[in-house]
């Protein structure tokens, strides 16, 4: 069953249009990669799913319409989000950051904390450190961890590799892969780093100026000459 269905979604910042008639769906257990250059609209797409922009069109989560819902309600319905800038709480400890994520999923705290610590052992060691003093990679881990604390049906991760060393990128890729394989998570991940997206996603959406330019499996897209040139860097 499709966890997420998006139909003809457009998004606006005031008069400026940032998404234009985007349609796609995400099946349970999938990892979908959204790739596109700066300003293509990747973050806007994810923000729109969270109800944080002005939109037209339809967004459904497991069949339920998200129109008119507040961000908090959408989180409660099952969308976990690790945004581009992480938006952590800098003067709170790692543990408290994670606990805020559990605000709407209080019954699952123990199980979710165990999962987060299993995926990111570092966060367990650093549980009392304020996130404002952490490294970029550690912050990214807290951000994904906090999203997992909401008990999401769908996890959305916006450019997790931005500004991180290749080794840390690999670590994060490994965790997302494990989340998908071991915990059955459904994941949308946006990336400019196409190689990173390729190692993870089964299916890719290619965005350009607010539209989906192409979509398909990694193999299908590899055969497309225009795309190969623009994104796979031959």
């Amino acid at each position: 069953m499709a966890i997420l269905e998006i139909e003809n979604l457009s998004a606006f910042y005031g008069k400026a249009q940032a998404l234009d008639g985007v349609s796609f769906s995400v099946e349970e257990g999938e990892i979908v990669g959204v790739i596109g250059a700066n300003g293509a609209g990747k973050s806007t797409l994810l923000d729109s799913i969270m109800g944080m922009t002005q939109t037209t069109g339809a967004i459904r989560l497991a069949g339920a319409d998200l129109a008119g819902k507040t961000t908090a309600e959408i989180v409660k319905m099952g969308v976990g989000y690790a945004p581009e800038r992480a938006n952590l709480f800098p003067y709170m400890s790692v543990r408290d950051n994670l606990l805020v994520g559990a605000y709407t999923a209080r019954d699952d705290i123990e199980r979710n904390l165990e999962m987060v610590h299993d995926l990111f052992p570092r966060l367990k060691e650093r549980s009392t450190q304020e996130t404002g003093t952490q490294s970029g990679g550690e912050r990214q881990m807290v951000s994904v961890g906090r999203a997992l604390m909401t008990s999401p049906k769908l996890l959305m991760v916006d450019e997790p590799t931005i500004g991180l060393a290749p080794k840390v990128c690999l670590e994060i890729a490994e965790v997302l892969r494990r989340l998908n394989k071991d915990y059955g998570a459904t994941i949308i991940i946006t990336e400019q780093n196409v190689n990173f997206a390729l190692t993870l996603a089964e299916r890719l959406l290619v965005m350009e100026t607010g539209r989906i330019r192409m979509s398909g499996t990694v193999e299908e897209l590899r055969e497309n000459p225009a795309l190969t040139e623009a994104y796979f860097g031959h």
Partner: peptide, 20 residues
């Protein structure tokens, strides 16, 4: 109480954690 701290530090972060 933690939600109050969260809102004081980052509104967007609070909202995507399920805090209104």
């Amino acid at each position: 109480g933690r939600a109050m701290q969260a809102v004081s530090m980052d509104q967007k972060g609070a909202a995507i954690s399920g805090v209104n």
